[in-house]
Write a protein that binds this DNA or RNA. Sequence first.
DNA 1: ACCCAGGTGGCCC
DNA 2: GGGCCACATGGG
Length: 222
Amino acid sequence: MPEGRTLLEIYQLLLARFGSQNWWPAETAFEILVGAILTQQSRWSNVERSIRNLRETGLLEPETLSRLPLKELEILVQPSGLYRKKAVRIRSISEYLVERYKGDLNMFFGRNVEAIRDELLLLEGVGRETADAILLYAGAKPVFVVDAYTTRFCRRFGLTEEKAYERIRTFFETRLPLDVNLYKELHALIVQLCKQYCKTKPFCKECPLSHSCDRSFDSEHS
DNA sequence: ACCCAGGTGGCCC
DNA sequence: GGGCCACATGGG
């Protein structure tokens, strides 16, 4: 750990600097689940348009989406890109939830976390990150979400050189208390930090982790 | 005009 | 297990 800081200390630092992120404000768990698909490889501002389309047409429920013709769904989710793929994904997940759980998300999430995760991973278009985002933000399960920012963050600040998804997830989960809200916030804070300070050059004076940043940058290019 | 964003699955070695 | 590709819109 850089400068002897623990992950928890880094979290507190980021929280003090950026404040609570309160990520993923949504009206329902299903909305988060749909959003998790839509946000794949696209910007949140674009996802919001799609979500708005779905909400305004009153279709943002498993039953209705499971019956909506694919062509119509494609048009609604078009703003978030990769829209043909995403329409199929959202359709099939909706169908699955309806057939298997009567569209009841409480029933779906009311089981062993690993069982839910395995089930999510069987769905078309749900990989590890999407599954974990759904578990954490929609199901309030203590699963740490690893995305491109998280991996970059780890490498950039010299936390770990691990690249494999599960190993990075384990890295976080074994160093943090089992706290859903903490997992949500830290993930969001890492994204916030990276967006603001990590895409361009190092030596960002205002970066809350600037000391570690500069240090790890030397090693990053050697 | 180009490059990328809160990935995934298929195909190759 | 890793590297490369298609998928696609809107913003910088």
